[in-house]
Design a protein around this nucleic acid. Structure first.
Length: 463
RNA sequence: GGUCCCAUCGUCUAUCGGUUAGGACACAUGGUUUUCAUCCAUGAAAGAGGGGUUCGAUUCCCCUUGGGACCGCCA
C-alpha cells in the first residue's frame, strides 16, 4: 500500500508555526516510509483566501526544506467533483436538503443561549417531505449524521477515541450557493489523492468523526488518522495570530536558521530518548508517531535561541556565511564585496557570541560602518592614561606590516610593561576606540578584521 | 454550558510496575579567559490531590482538581 501524506493549509494568512510543525510531521512520515508528501491549498473560502498567502506558504515550506511531491493541489479546482459527491449522497439518502433560513437558525441559537442549553440543529428537514418547501429559501444540503450508536477512531497518536454519534449534528456539506464546505471538500480530495495518513492538529478531531461518516457512506476506505497535540502560547492557549512570533516569517526575521527551527519543532511534542540535535536525515530515520506525546506543548523562545546557537556554532562556516549574506540582503542591508570579504574572514569570532543571524549582524557593525559610535559610559574609560597607551600603540602599529597575532603580541606586551598595566589596561581602550564598546571581540581579532587605515583613523580620532 | 481530551522540574521531555526519577533549555554559583560571550564544573528544581489494584506504583483503574480543544452556510 502506498503511503501518502498531505499538508492542507488554507491560504488565509501567513503560515503559522503550528502549521509548520504539522507540515513537518507529515513530510517526515512520508519520507520515512518512502511515500509521498502532497501540498493541498484549501482555498474554498473565496472571501478570505489570498493568492499572496498561497505563495507565502509555498515559500515558507521551501525555506524549511520541506518540498512537496508534484504540483500543489488547488482545492477550488475540484469543486465540481465535490458537488457531484454531495448530489450522490443526496440521491443515496445520506444527505438531505434543509430549507431553514440563516435567520431561523440564528433565532434558534439565540433561544438556546437564553435558556442556557447547548444548541444542536433540530434536524427539522431530515425526514420532511419536500412538498411544503418554502419558495423563497435556497436550501443547503446537510449530511444525515448517525443518530444512535458510537463511532470509534483508532488514532495513531491519541489512541482509541470514542464518541456518541448523537453529538454530531447534521453538518452542512453544500451551502445555499451550492459551494461545498470543508467537511465535504477535504474528504473528497483526501480520497481522490489517495491519502493514506491524515496527520493534523488535534483541533480537527471532531472533523474526523464527521468525515469518517462521509467515507463510510460513499463506501470509501477510511484513512489512518493522527491528531497531534496543539502548540500553546506561553499563556497556555492555542497559538493564534495575535501571539508574538507565531508565524514562520517572524522567526526568519530574527535570524533563526531553518535547520534549527526544524530541529526545535521536531522536539516539540516528540522525542527520541535523550537526543536533542537531529540532522535532517536523522529526523527522517528516527521519527515515528509513537514518540509523539498527547499533551500540548508550550512554545519556548529561549529554547529556539539555544538550538539556533548550537547550529550557528557547528555548521560549516561557508554555509553560515551564505545564510548571513541572504539574511542581510533580505532584512538588513546587502553586503558589498569588500565587506563580504571582511565579514567572511572574521566570521569565526563574530559568530561566537551570537544566538541568531541578527546577533552576528550586530556584532559586525564595527566592520560594516565607517564610523564607530562610542557611548557615554565607554567614553569615560578613555582617560589620559588610555590615550597615552593608544598613542604609543599607534607609533608601533604604523611600523608594522603583515598583521597577525604574532606581530601584534610584542607590541601589546611592551605597552603593558611600559605603562605598568595589565592586558585589560591596553586592550580595553583599544577595543573601545575600534569597536565602540568595551564588550567586543578579542583585541587581536578586532585589529586583524579592520583595514589598517581604518584602525589608525579610529585610534587617531581618540587622542 | 455540552462533547472530547490532557496532567513528571519554570519549559521541552526520558521512564513503557522495582531508578538516588535521567537529559536539555532557562536559572544560580564557581573556574578558565583579554572585556562581553564561549567553554568547563557544580547546584537548586518535578511525578496535582485522594482512593483503589499489586509484594511494590510516576507508570494500571476510579474520583476530585487544574488545564486545553471543539461546539460556523471558516478551514
Amino acid at each position: 500500500m502506498s503511503f501518502n501524506c498531505r499538508f492542507a493549509p488554507s491560504p488565509t494568512g501567513p503560515l503559522h508555526i503550528g502549521g509548520v510543525r504539522t507540515a513537518l510531521f507529515n513530510w517526515l512520515l512520508a519520507k520515512k516510509n518512502k511515500g509521498k508528501f502532497f501540498l493541498r491549498i484549501e482555498d474554498t473560502d473565496k472571501e478570505r483566501s489570498k493568492d499572496e498567502f498561497k505563495k507565502q506558504i509555498i515559500s515558507s515550506l521551501a525555506w524549511l526544506g520541506i518540498e512537496h511531491d508534484g504540483e500543489e493541489y488547488i482545492q477550488s479546482k475540484n469543486i465540481k467533483k465535490h458537488i457531484t459527491i454531495a448530489e450522490e449522497l443526496l440521491k443515496k439518502g445520506f444527505a438531505y436538503k434543509c430549507y431553514c433560513s440563516e435567520q431561523e437558525i440564528n433565532e434558534q441559537k439565540e433561544k438556546c443561549k437564553k435558556q442556557g442549553i447547548p444548541y444542536v440543529y433540530n434536524r427539522k428537514w431530515r425526514e420532511a417531505k419536500e412538498l411544503n418547501v418554502p419558495k423563497d429559501v435556497q436550501p443547503v444540503i446537510r449530511f444525515k449524521s448517525k443518530i444512535s450508536g458510537n463511532t470509534i477512531i483508532k488514532d495513531l497518536v491519541q489512541g482509541e477515541r470514542n464518541i456518541s454519534n448523537s453529538t454530531i449534528e447534521d453538518f452542512i456539506i453544500l451551502r445555499k450557493d451550492k459551494s461545498p464546505t470543508y467537511q465535504l471538500s477535504a474528504t473528497v480530495d483526501d480520497h481522490e489523492m489517495k491519502i493514506s495518513h491524515v496527520i493534523r492538529g488535534d483541533d480537527h478531531m471532531i472533523n474526523s468523526f464527521k468525515q469518517k461518516q462521509i467515507y463510510d457512506a460513499m463506501g470509501w476506505k477510511v484513512p489512518e488518522f493522527a491528531h497531534i497535540p496543539l502548540i500553546h502560547s506561553e499563556q497556555g492557549k492555542k497559538l493564534s495570530k495575535r501571539d508574538n512570533a507565531s508565524t514562520l516569517e517572524d522567526y526568519i526575521k530574527i535570524g533563526i536558521l531553518s535547520d534549527a527551527l526544524r530541529n526545535y519543532l521536531l522536539r516539540l511534542g516528540w522525542s527520541h530518548k535523550d537526543k536533542e540535535i537531529f540532522t535532517k536525515q536523522e529526523s527522517i530515520d528516527l521519527f515515528d508517531l509513537n514518540g509523539v506525546g498527547k499533551s500540548p506543548s508550550k512554545l519556548d523562545l529561549s529554547r529556539i535561541y539555544s538550538i539556533n546557537e548550537t547550529y550557528i556554532k557547528t555548521i560549516d562556516e561557508k554555509e553560515l556565511f551564505n545564510y548571513l549574506k541572504d539574511y542581510a540582503s533580505k532584512y538588513k542591508k546587502p553586503l558589498n564585496q569588500v565587506k563580504e570579504k571582511a565579514i567572511s574572514k572574521s566570521l569565526s569570532f563574530l559568530k561566537n557570541k551570537a544566538k541568531t543571524l541578527e546577533d552576528i549582524w550586530k556584532n559586525s557593525q564595527y566592520i560594516l560602518n565607517d564610523k564607530v559610535e562610542i557611548n557615554a559610559d565607554d567614553r569615560k574609560l578613555l582617560n589620559d592614561d588610555a590615550k597615552k597607551i593608544i598613542k604609543d600603540f599607534i607609533a608601533n602599529y604604523e611600523k608594522t606590516d603583515n598583521l597577525s597575532k604574532e606581530t601584534l603580541e610584542p607590541i601589546i606586551k611592551s605597552l603593558i610593561e611600559n605603562h605598568k598595566t595589565n592586558f585589560k589596561g591596553v586592550g580595553q581602550p583599544l577595543r573601545i576606540a575600534l569597536v565602540g564598546t568595551r564588550f567586543g571581540p578579542g583585541i587581536y581579532d578586532v585589529i586583524k578584521s579592520l583595514d589598517k587605515l581604518i584602525v589608525l583613523e579610529r585610534l587617531k580620532k581618540i587622542i
